[in-house]
Amino acid sequence: MTEPLLSARDVVQEFAVRDSGGSWGGVVQAVSGVTFDVMAGETLGIVGETGSGKSTLARSLLQAPRPKSGTVTFRGTDLTRLRGRKLLRARRHMQFVFQDPFGSLDPRWRVRSIVSEPLLAYGDGSAGHRQARVDELLDLVGLDPARYAGRHPRELSGGQAQRVAIARAVALNPSLLICDEAVSSLDVLIQAQVLNLFEKLRSELGLSYVFIAHDLALVKQVSDRVAVMYLGRLCETGPGEAVYKTPLHPYTRALLDSIPATDPGAGRATTTLRGEPPSPISPPSGCRFRTRCPRAADLCAEQTPQMRDLGGGHTVACHFPLEKKEPSALKETAV
């Protein structure tokens, strides 16, 4: 087996929350022991509800801020041990695209400077070279340099702004792009265009992706492998096909059931989630999903379920995983 491009081991991220008056309010365990690999050329989709810690995970991978514990190994280097210039150099081939296209572009800068910022920061080439590279990048993401290079972000549409962010992300020829809800704020049509752009970059530049989103259908569409996240932990990972066809974790099942059926005759979902996700300040003991799980037993409160491989790279962290059955057979076990 070849070495993974990116491998996260037991990544933990916590925040001390302060209430608005500034006094101490508790510790949010946003990411608790997340482990996964991304192979070269692969797209890993991470899916989860709002507040599941997906975005925090994305930023922990980028070391912004550095995770509390665990390791993030990228191209054979452990990023969590590096700081300053060395971290910068090691992270060079790992870039990012964030959710809010306008928020992630400095409103006072022009598109040209925004796209060339990483080139300048990493000291790539002369000013003339950078200029040519910016034009090339804008062309690559489908923006006419002559029209757009001189604009400010506020003079762009959401889709155009996101294209600028993507151009900046690929400026340094990265091998991995971390996309945190990169298309969620865009209209459906624009979403499709940007997804096509991602696909094009993948084939043209040989990019790998960590693609984080709350939209299952979207993740399914772009990912080779999918990881499902709940309250700071991964509960299931596996090839996209396997996870969507035969989910092993009750949470994944519930998520899939929550997708409205496109076929009017198909009827409503069978399992629906009870209640709200618990507070990440005081998560439940053992399995974090147990408070809402139809299959929960005493064991789930006592022991944290470990990830185990049930064959074909399909892993699950559940004491009582669903059998590999067709969804129709689930009804009897789930109720």
């Binding site: 925040f15 929350v17 209430d19 608005s20 008056g21 006094s23 309010g25 508790g26 949010v28 946003a30 507070s279 990440p280 300040i281």
Partner: peptide
């Protein structure tokens, strides 16, 4: 402000 503002009084914990 602290006494009368309910957000502070209840110590909200939005992350």
């Amino acid at each position: 402000y602290a006494v009368l503002d309910p957000r502070i009084r209840h110590g909200s914990t939005n992350s």
